[in-house]
């Protein structure tokens, strides 16, 4: 089809370009649209701005927790509905068999949040057009490795240098406590207290990851 009449001299103008922009911004336009974008400073500034906004939006991570009251109300409702047993918290945190899985779950959240943020940052700086949802690409089956710890420390050193040594020494302390509890458990797999110590050690590590990501 030849652009006649309606498109004036056959050259696309800004109004025409901006009219189709919503539909082509993520996919790219046809030759004519791409040419207008190349040649028109106003429209290319506009597109740059929009891409910048999208890029910055990707860097927004969840920052706030709901008030503890929310959980209390949920719990009260669940108890009323009989979905959970109304019971005092007992010593036993989780059943005795697949407990290592539960440990994973505890550390995962914070670690996943950390990875998500890193992923978002890398992605945003790499390409704005890549609209793959970053949250979906992370394995929830991992626990942090030594390299992850290293990366965490680097991130803190870059964003809050004054906190770097505190993260270093506390991460060392937490890793030592994990090793400590694991060793005891290997010798005595039925030691409930050692098992809970290990769970808590992972929770503490999760806290470090969570605070580092803020």
């Amino acid at each position: 089809m030849i652009g006649l009449g309606k498109r004036g001299e056959g050259v696309m103008n800004c109004a025409e370009f901006q009219k189709v922009l919503p539909y082509i911004i993520e996919t790219g336009g046809n030759t004519e649209e791409e040419r207008h974008l190349r040649e028109c400073l106003v429209c290319s500034d506009l597109v740059e701005d929009l891409k910048y906004i999208v890029e910055q939006a990707k860097l927004l991570v969840p920052m706030e927790d709901p008030s503890p009251r929310v959980w209390e109300e949920i719990k009260a409702s669940l108890e009323r509905e009989g979905r959970i047993k109304r019971a005092r918290l007992k010593g036993r945190l989780l059943g005795p068999i697949p407990w290592i899985g539960a440990l994973g779950a505890i550390i995962l959240v914070a670690f996943a949040a950390f990875l998500v943020e890193r992923g978002r940052q890398q992605q945003a700086s790499a390409s704005v057009e890549n609209t793959t949802p970053p949250l979906q690409t992370i394995s929830l089956n991992t626990v942090p490795t030594e390299q992850d710890d290293e990366q965490l420390l680097q991130q803190v050193a870059a964003s809050r240098p004054s906190s770097a040594s505190a993260y270093q020494s506390n991460l060392d302390q937490v890793n030592a406590s994990i090793a400590d509890a694991k060793r005891t458990l290997e010798q005595n797999p039925d030691d409930e207290d050692a098992r809970q110590s290990l769970i808590r050690a992972y929770q503490q590590k999760a806290l470090l990851y969570e605070l580092a990501a803020q």
Partner: peptide, 23 residues
């Protein structure tokens, strides 16, 4: 990816009414 043990365990336990898993 996410069908690993960890979260899945908590979900299974929550289905049985385990308060800690809900939490």
């Amino acid at each position: 990816i996410a069908s690993g043990l960890s979260e899945a365990d908590a979900i299974e336990r929550a289905k049985q009414g385990d308060a800690e898993s809900f939490a």
